[in-house]
Amino acid sequence: MAKIIVVTSGKGGVGKTTSSAAIGTGLALKGHKTVIIDFDIGLRNLDLIMGCERRVVYDFVNVINGEANLKQTLIKDKRIDNLFILPASQTRDKDALTKDGVERVLNELAKDFDFILCDSPAGIEAGAMMALYFADEAIVVTNPEVSSVRDSDRILGMLSSKSRRAEQGQDSIKEHLLLTRYNPERVEKGEMLSVDDVKEILSIDLVGVIPESQAVLNASNSGQPVILDKDSDAGQAYLDTVERLLGENVPFRFLTVEKKGLLKRIFGG
């Protein structure tokens, strides 16, 4: 049985696509057959972050409309086995995704994949609703900042009332908090909400904390999901996140300011 996981946030620009690319890649690295679906109709970007933008032929909406089949449309990752991308359409028609259509595609994918990761668009409108509707689990991407936390809470409300699981009275969606762009230095100075603050306010399980990192920009510049940058703090934090998602018990890292060693203090770095 495939597990459908939505990566969502309410607020825009908090790191959903970055996280979808990293976590999807990580699941495939761990041997699970994974597809990442770009639900951001009109604003396709997952292809760029995954570095496959020149290989897009057909898209999600083509499949729904029967203009192409999944085999023609799915883009197989060149670096990692078991990893596929279903690109979003560039159409401006926001109603291009229908519930029936999305369900059909998900059902077909579910026969073949272990994980289906849905990269949600921002907002709480139709597009975001569609991305979360069929989910079994949700990764709620949040920045340690007031409007992001508030919007995350609104998305939690949607997950528990507007999803298929809610409407059909099934077990509720399993919710995970993913805190991104975390800056321990600013937390210590009292300028930024801490992990514990956000956890306490939203009261859901923490699956990962990704530090604010130059590595993320480098990764997107070159079309390499940051999790492949194994020496970077963000890459390692995403790898930890994937392991927790798979049920492993992994201690949290990068939560405190790195104490500079004597040599570093003398020579900089």
């Binding site: 007031v146 936390v149 809470d153 930024m192 603050d197 306490e200 306010i201």
Partner: peptide
């Protein structure tokens, strides 16, 4: 005296989130 704005943020969020949850 050095203002801790993170605490202010947390308090405000706790109030508004509780309020919005009740409303939902």
């Amino acid at each position: 005296s050095k203002k801790n704005t993170a605490n202010t943020a947390k308090e405000r969020l706790q109030i508004i989130v509780a309020h919005e949850r009740r409303k939902r």
